[in-house]
Design a protein around this nucleic acid. Structure first.
Lengths: 350, 350
DNA sequence: TGTTAGCACTCTATGATGTAGAGTGCTAAC
DNA sequence: GTTAGCACTCTACATCATAGAGTGCTAACA
C-alpha cells in the first residue's frame, strides 16, 4: 500500500527515537512530542523529520497517540522491545541493601518479609515474595509422647527440617511401653517415605504390628499426611501494596480497588505461583518481565510485573516479584532484582 | 446573649430532629435540609420551625453547615450522643454468620481469619482481629530428642497447649542416657514455672545437676525464654482494607493512602492493642465506639472505630474491631459485633 | 408565645463558551 | 532526504451565567 514501505523497518535512527520516546515517557508520564525529541537527542534533526519517523513508528505499532493533537506514548510492543533489547543496567544500590538485610537473618520467613519490604520501599512499587517450596517432602523422624492424662504430643520432622506438631486428645491413657513400641514401628516403617509411598499396604502393616490403639495411629497418620502434602499455606509476603495508589494511570478507582484487593487476598500471587510453577529450569537468575496483557490478569492490563526465582538449594525455591504501572522504571527494577538475587544467593550459602 | 437561651436544652423535639438528621445523613451522606426533615418526621412542623430548632442545635454544637446554603451534618458530638443513646439494635444476620463459620473450626487462627473476613464482607468496612493473648504462660512439658547425628529437637508445650519447637545443631553427639537425664531434670525443675520464676539460681542448679552439655542447656533455656515471652508475633488478621476506598469522604487521596498503609503494616492495630490492653475488666461483651478524634490517631480523624473483646477463657482474650468512615452504620456494626461475640462465645465453649 | 408563610440572600454545582498551547500532517522548497 | 511553514485539531483551563437548594429574618397568625 505505502509507496515507501521499505522504510518500515527499525533502522538505528528509529530505534534511537523510539528509545527516547520510551525513556522520556517513563520519566514524565506525558505523551512525547516531536519537538522534545528533536531537542533531546543528538541526532540533530528537525521536528518535522522526527514527525515522519514517528508516523512510521506508529504504523509499525510501537507508539500511539492518545488523541489527535497529543504526543506519542509507547505501546506494549515498544515496552517489550525496550525490556528485551534496551535495558540499561545500573548496579548502584547493592550495598545498602545487604546491610539492611543482614541485621536479622535468623529465620527464613523473617528474612523474606524483609526482602519484600526492602523491594517495595526501594522501587516504590508493590512487592511480593513467596516462601520457599519443597519439591517433595519425606518423613525423617516421628515421635509420640504423652504430655498429660488426656493428651499426647505428635512431632514430625521432615527431611527439609521442617517440624510439625500437634496435640492429640485421647480418651484413655496409653501405656508407656505401647508408646515406645509405636514410636519404633512408625519410625522404622515410614522413615524416608514420601506421601505417595504411604499406601494402604503399609498402613495395614503398621496397624497389625501395633495391634491396638488404632485410633491414635489414624490420627498420627492423618497428621503425617497433612504435613507432607500441605503447601505450608503457600506463604506469601507482600509489601507496599499502597504504592499502587501513587500512580495516577492506575487510579481508575474501581480497577485500583480490585487490584489492591487482589493484593490483600494474595490472589495474584497464588495464581502466578500456580501458573509458573513448572518453569523452574532455565537461567540461574532469570528475571521475567510481564507487560500489560502478558500478565494474563484482567485487572492488571495497565500494570507490569517483574519476577524472579530464588533458590535456597536444589529443589527448594521461591518467587519474588514486583507489580507496578506499565510505565515502570524497568531499568531500576530489573537491576535491583538482579543485585537482590545475588545477595540472597550469598546469604543462603551460609 | 440569646434571649431565649432557655430553649437551649435537648427536649424531645430536638432529639427527634437530631436523630432524623443523623439517620438521614448516615443513609445518604448529603447534608440534611429543613424541608427533608419536615417531610420525613411525624412532627408535622413546617420547615421554618425546623429551621429554628436546627439553629439551636447548631448553637449547641450538634450539627454544622458545610457552607451557608447547605443543609446540616452531624458533628462528632452528635454521633457520640447517637451511639450512646439512640442505637437501634437489629438482630437479623446472626444465622448465616454461624453457618459460615462452623465449616472449619479446627484451628483458632483459621477461625479468626474467617471472622475478620466475615466482618469485613458483612459490614463493608475494614476489619481487624487480634489473635488470643495469654496473660502468663507456664511450661508444661519439655522434651529433647536426638533426630540425627548433627541435630537434636527441642519441643516445649506451654500450659495454654501451644507447642514450640526448634532443631538445634550440635557438634558432638549426646548419648542417649544423657538425653534421658536432661529431660528428667528439665521437666522436674521447670514444670509449672513462668518466665519470672526462672532465675539464675534455678539455671545454675540445672547446670550442676546435668554436669555436662552446658551448651545444649543454654540453647534450650533460650528457646524456653523466647517461647514464654514472645507475643506470638502479636498476630493480627485484617480483612477488607480496600473497603476504605469505597467511602468518598475518606478519599482525600494522601490520607487514605496513609490509612491503608497503616492497615497493611498493622500499625493501627498494634497501637490499639497496646493502649487498651489494660481495660480488660468491665462488661462481658462491652463494645467500644471511637468517633473521629476519639481514636487518638491523626490519620483516622474522619474515621470511626468499633471494637470488642472476645474471651476464650479466663485470661485468654483478643480483640476484634472494624474501621470505617465516621458516617458509619453504627446500628448495623454494633449489632453485628454483638451477635458475632455471642457466636464466638458459643464456639469457644467447645 | 409558638408556628408559619414569604422573601431576599448565599453558595454550589453544572454546563456553555472562549482561548491559549501543544502537537500534528501536509505541502512546497531546499 | 530534510526542513520550514502553515492550517488544523484537540485538550486543558478559566470565565461566565444559571438553576436549585437551603438558609435567616420578618411579619403575620392562632
Amino acid at each position: 500500500m505505502t509507496e515507501r514501505s521499505g522504510s518500515l523497518d527499525l533502522n538505528d535512527r528509529k530505534i534511537k527515537i523510539l528509545q527516547t520516546i520510551i525513556r522520556t515517557y517513563l520519566d514524565t508520564g506525558e505523551p512525547v512530542g516531536s519537538r522534545t525529541i528533536s531537542k533531546d537527542t543528538d541526532l540533530s534533526l528537525s521536528s518535522a523529520t522526527i514527525r515522519n519517523e514517528m508516523s512510521d513508528l506508529e504504523e509499525m505499532g510501537y507508539i500511539i497517540q492518545p488523541h489527535t493533537s497529543a504526543g506519542r506514548i509507547p505501546t506494549d510492543k515498544a515496552y517489550r522491545l525496550y525490556v528485551d533489547t534496551m535495558l540499561d543496567y545500573k548496579s548502584e544500590e547493592i550495598s545498602d541493601l545487604k546491610e539492611q538485610l543482614e541485621e536479622k537473618t535468623d529465620k527464613i520467613d523473617a528474612l523474606l518479609k524483609q526482602v519484600a519490604k526492602f523491594l517495595a520501599s526501594n522501587t516504590n512499587y508493590a512487592s511480593m515474595v513467596s516462601g520457599p517450596r519443597y519439591k517433595s517432602k519425606k518423613v525423617k523422624f516421628i515421635q509420640i509422647t504423652p504430655v498429660d492424662e488426656e493428651s499426647i504430643l505428635t512431632v514430625i520432622v521432615l527431611d527439609n527440617n521442617v517440624v510439625k506438631n500437634q496435640l492429640l486428645r485421647i480418651t484413655e491413657p496409653v501405656e508407656q511401653e505401647q508408646i515406645v513400641k509405636l514410636n519404633f514401628i512408625l519410625n522404622t516403617t515410614l522413615n524416608g517415605l514420601d506421601v505417595t509411598e504411604m499406601n494402604l499396604a503399609i498402613i495395614k502393616e503398621i496397624k497389625e504390628q501395633v495391634g491396638s490403639h488404632t485410633g491414635v495411629i489414624d490420627a498420627v497418620l492423618e497428621l503425617i499426611g497433612n504435613a507432607l502434602t500441605e503447601d505450608d499455606d503457600l506463604e506469601v509476603y507482600t509489601s507496599g501494596a499502597t504504592n499502587i495508589l501513587k500512580y495516577p494511570e492506575l487510579t481508575s478507582k474501581s480497577e485500583t480497588t480490585e487490584l489492591l484487593n487482589a493484593f490483600e487476598e494474595k490472589k495474584i500471587i497464588k495464581n502466578w505461583l500456580a501458573t509458573t510453577d513448572n518453569g523452574e529450569e532455565g537461567e540461574k537468575h532469570d528475571i521475567q518481565v510481564y507487560i500489560g496483557d502478558e500478565t494474563k490478569v484482567e485487572t492488571m492490563k495497565d500494570c507490569s510485573m517483574v519476577t524472579a526465582t530464588y533458590r535456597i538449594h536444589e529443589g527448594v525455591y521461591g518467587k519474588i516479584g514486583i507489580v507496578g504501572p506499565k510505565r515502570m522504571d524497568y531499568d531500576k527494577v530489573v537491576s535491583t532484582l538482579h543485585s537482590l538475587m545475588a545477595q540472597l544467593d550469598d546469604i543462603f550459602k551460609n
